[in-house]
């Protein structure tokens, strides 16, 4: 092992160091402006060596790569960096993600109280995967006056993260049930907002176009339209005039500000034409908040 890594800029730029030597040199770099300057210039130089070796790849490679990226999650930027905010949608997604992270932290704490840090970590991973999926879309609606239901969905992962705030506690004989609404109606699982709300990851997005939340008997109802005796509320595409959903400002909203507003229950809506309501049906037992979302294929 070389005692002084100072003279390794050349081998480093050529990838001619072992992993150990490379890590050592990279630790040395911040304290050596001369080395850092050389490394930058050398990296531009070796890039030219690479360009000179260019060779047309087999034609089939393009299709394989393009297919693979559609099912490959992108990693978020390293901490402390922000993506350029050319598009409001990206910014808003980050804002929504930040809000969900806040919710997640408390959710993780709640889980640990119940003795399973491992579950918390697993949930954390799943939530992060959905929120950072390249095709993640966020919709939020207000329900029950001040409650909010936020859905972050990813068609490519076939999953969604659902968070709620201020949903009314239910008697033990009742539970909230989530539904995928599309050509068919499918249960997306149940939700118990007691205690600190935490995000729920639900799968089976499939070809659903809307997401619904109803109050059902404890344990949930089977996969059928909830309360068949009631008019099918999800077929009613007309939001009532007193629709609780408002469009979020389309631009110019600081991410942090939007997050705070969302947390106050003022709703953030991104990338879709969200409309929704919480409607007591005539049957009296069920209420549904509809969260339509637009999800590109």
């Amino acid at each position: 092992m070389t005692r002084d890594p100072h003279d390794l800029a050349g081998p480093y730029a050529l990838d001619a160091l072992t992993d150990t030597e490379r890590r050592r040199f990279e630790r040395h770099l911040p304290s050596c402006p001369t080395c850092a300057g050389q490394v930058t210039g050398f990296a531009e130089t070796t890039a030219r060596l690479a360009l000179a070796a260019a060779h047309r790849p087999p034609g089939a490679l393009r299709g394989r790569v393009m297919a693979e990226i559609t099912r490959t999650r992108q990693t978020p930027p390293p901490l402390g960096r922000r993506l350029p905010s050319h598009r409001v949608r990206g910014l808003s997604r980050l804002a929504a993600a930040a809000c969900l992270v806040l919710a997640l932290i408390s959710g993780g704490a709640a889980l640990r109280l119940h003795g399973s840090a491992q579950d918390a970590r697993a949930l954390n991973r799943q939530v992060t995967a959905v929120m950072t999926a390249p095709d993640a879309r966020t919709s939020t609606v207000r329900a029950q006056g001040t409650a909010t239901v936020t859905l972050v969905s990813s068609r490519s992962l076939n999953k969604a993260v659902v968070t709620t705030a201020r949903l009314r506690p239910l008697p033990s004989a009742r539970t909230y049930q989530m539904w995928w609404l599309g050509p068919t109606v499918r249960s997306a699982g149940t939700l118990n907002p007691s205690g600190k709300p935490r995000p729920v990851v639900t799968t089976g997005l499939g070809d659903a176009q809307r997401f619904g939340l109803t109050i059902e008997p404890a344990g949930g109802s089977p996969s059928r339209p909830p309360h068949p005796s009631s008019p099918s509320p999800w077929n009613d595409h007309t939001a009532p005039s007193d629709s609780p959903v408002e469009r979020a400002p389309s631009q110019g909203t600081d991410a942090g500000q939007r997050c705070r507003r969302t947390r106050k229950g003022l709703r953030s809506h991104v990338g879709g034409t969200a409309s929704g309501r919480l409607a007591a049906t005539r049957a009296g037992a069920s209420a549904m908040a509809r969260v339509p979302f637009r999800q590109t294929q």
Partner: peptide, 13 residues
């Protein structure tokens, strides 16, 4: 992809 696939493949080759 169109810009980099040639250099990336050629270099690997």
């Amino acid at each position: 992809y169109d810009l980099l696939s040639g250099p990336v493949y050629g270099l690997a080759l």
